[in-house]
């Protein structure tokens, strides 16, 4: 195992829209060590989402190498990618993170169930993590019966619960008010410390940047700044 959770080498991504080619990422090199809490920032269209999707294997780079937890994501097939995501990567999107027909607890158990964890253990772990994200008592509500902030907390709980190597969060606070966003970030920082998980998220939000220990700035698909914060 590497001491880096994510390694990107000369990664480029070009989208082809009809005859138009959009250079979304150009020659990205990036190492993210274990337990990092890093933040991607940059103006709209700078390539933050594209980068997260490539790392998570939801899309393929046009060129370059991407390694997550020792596996070459760019070389994996569909089924292997599904397995990698299932066991190593947790996702938190901006919204619509939850399966509408399942309750909060079932959403959290969903990934564990796919992993084949026994019902009793699933349930115990789901209840523990729900307590950690302060949602005890709401476990039987469906997403439609939860506020935006509560839904995001359920999404974080689900991303964390099976202790993946990496959690990718694309603008997790974009739909939240600042108070709720603050609480969610505190939760993420807490999770990062308590669980052995590397975090990489993207944001426009100053508040989110302030919580991160490393700030990577993107502009027009290139890394223009990368600094550690104290």
């Amino acid at each position: 195992m590497t001491e880096h959770t994510v390694i990107l080498r000369n990664v480029s991504k070009v989208y082809h829209q009809n005859t138009l080619a959009v250079q979304a990422l150009t020659d990205i090199n990036l190492d993210i060590p274990k337990k990092e809490l890093a933040c991607l920032s940059g103006p709209s269209g700078s390539g933050k989402s594209t980068l997260l999707n490539l790392i998570g294997g939801l899309d393929k780079p046009t060129s370059g190498e991407i390694t997550v937890d020792g596996q070459r994501v760019d070389l994996l097939g569909k089924a292997e990618l599904a397995a990698l995501r299932l066991h190593k990567i947790g996702f938190v999107f901006q919204a619509y993170n939850l399966i509408p027909v399942l309750t909060a607890r079932e959403n959290i158990e969903f990934v564990m169930q796919l992993q084949g964890i026994s019902a009793a253990e699933r349930r115990a772990r789901a209840m523990d993590i729900l307590k950690e994200v302060d949602l005890t008592g709401l476990e039987d509500r469906r997403p439609g019966e939860l506020s935006g902030g509560q839904q995001q907390r359920v999404a974080v709980a689900r991303a964390i619960v099976s202790e993946p190597s990496l959690v990718l969060a694309d603008e997790p606070t974009a739909n939240l008010d600042s108070k709720t966003a603050q609480a969610l970030m505190e939760l993420l920082v807490h999770m990062n410390q308590e669980h052995n998980v590397t975090f990489l998220f993207s944001t426009h939000d100053r508040l989110v940047m302030d919580f991160s220990r490393r700030l990577i700035k993107l502009h027009d698909g290139r890394i223009v700044d990368d600094q550690r914060r104290t």
């Binding site: 998570g56 939801l58 569909k78 089924a79 599904a82 397995a83 990698l84 995501r85 299932l86 066991h87 990567i89 996702f91 999107f93 619509y96 993170n97 399966i99 509408p100 969903f110 990934v111 796919l114 689900r158």
Partner: peptide
């Protein structure tokens, strides 16, 4: 469609 995409992101086998 979005849900099926979510299943995909969560690692549900096709």
């Amino acid at each position: 469609t979005r849900e099926f995409g979510l299943f995909q992101a969560l690692g549900m086998p096709p």
